[in-house]
Simulated assay, not measured.
Amino acid sequence: METSYQGGVAQEGGSDNFQRLSSTIASNIKKISQNVSSMSKMVNQLQTPQDSQELRNQLRQIQNYTQKLVKDTSSLLMELMRLPAEHPAARLTRDRLSDEYMATLNAFQTTQRSAAQKSKEDVKKVKAQSFNIGDAFATGGGNTDQQLVEMSDTNLRKQEQITRQTERELLELEEREQDIRQLESDIKDVNQIFKELGQIIHEQGAVVDSIESCVEYASQNVESATQELRQAATYKNKLRKKKVYIAIILAIIICIILIIVFRH
């Protein structure tokens, strides 16, 4: 079955690293979403007439590919979150991608849990059937050696067929239990990814708040400085006017003195 997983690790270096990372992450999120949709349809077919070993193999394959893609995308997103996003457009892109990825990751984990739950139910049924088959082979108290010898070849062949079928079921049971253990391990990995991304997003939020606080503080300082400059300009204008008034008064006084002197 063709899956949507392709290696999603971007190359480092270059001034357009942010753009390449964001583009790769967006593409990977789309692939993961498509795979989750396919997985959900397969999980819904489990325990129905459409259920088959081929279906379970396809589900396991696409789940494994998606798990790898999730890990790659998580690494890329963490790298993107650590890059400086000075422009508002870059911050919006980073926040949008993180929100979309977290939602997609949540849908993937929900599908994983549903698949694990149905697999556990199937294992319980197989174990119960195997136990009942074992009881059917138990030798009853009324059976004698003579009766066992007189069993027909047909019954012996039936017993052999049932035994082989039981062995196949036990092998399938072991494989399913191994798949369940792997699926539970993958679910734990996704939980860890949630925690790591949540921590980084929280740290980025604190950094953004700090930057916004600094910008607000700087804006307040600029406004305060502007107000002080206006006050200084007002004081300067008033002082200049005072000097003009004093000069005019002095000139008038000098003129009066000169007039008095010339008259005498």
Rank of each mutant, 00 (worst) to 15 (best):
L80D: 01
Q227A: 06
Q227H: 08
V126I: 13
E172D: 15
D51L: 03
S98D: 11
E167T: 02
I246G: 01
L258N: 00
F108C: 03
V36G: 01
F137R: 05
S219R: 10
H264W: 15
E228C: 06
R56I: 04
D16C: 00
K30S: 15
L97C: 01
I256Y: 05
Y217M: 15
A116E: 00
D99I: 09
T73E: 07
Q58P: 07
G13A: 03
P84V: 03
L80N: 00
T93W: 00
N28D: 01
A136Y: 10
Q220D: 14
L229I: 08
F18S: 02
V222Q: 11
E223V: 04
Q67R: 12
S98E: 06
T163Y: 14
S22R: 00
I254Y: 04
I254W: 01
N44Y: 11
E167Y: 08
E172I: 15
D95Y: 00
N64S: 14
E12F: 09
E216D: 07
A138K: 11
F137I: 01
D51T: 01
S210F: 06
T3L: 01
T234Q: 11
Q47Y: 04
E175Q: 14
T104G: 15
T234F: 09
V261A: 07
Q204P: 13
L76W: 13
R96H: 14
S210C: 08
D189I: 14
S185Y: 05
S74K: 08
R113H: 10
M1Y: 03
S4L: 09
I193C: 04
S130N: 06
K241F: 13
Q199G: 13
V123M: 02
I259H: 06
Q45T: 02
T166M: 07
Q58V: 06
L171T: 12
G140M: 03
C214N: 13
S152P: 02
E12D: 14
R230S: 08
L250N: 07
R176L: 15
S52R: 06
T163H: 11
R168D: 12
K31I: 06
E86V: 15
E12P: 13
S219W: 10
Q117W: 02
I32R: 01
S114E: 05
L55E: 02
V222K: 08
K41W: 10
K188M: 03
L105T: 00
S23C: 08
P88F: 03
L239I: 14
G8H: 09
Q11G: 03
T111S: 05
I249H: 03
T3C: 00
N44P: 07
K127C: 10
A233I: 12
Q61W: 02
S114Y: 03
E228Y: 05
E212H: 04
L156R: 05
G8L: 10
S75E: 03
S224M: 07
E121P: 08
S219N: 13
A103T: 07
L92I: 13
Q182A: 11
F18V: 05
A115P: 09
Q147Y: 04
R176W: 13
A225Q: 11
S219H: 12
T234M: 11
V190Y: 02
K125T: 09
E100D: 04
A136V: 10
T66W: 04
E167S: 03
L46S: 04
R91E: 01
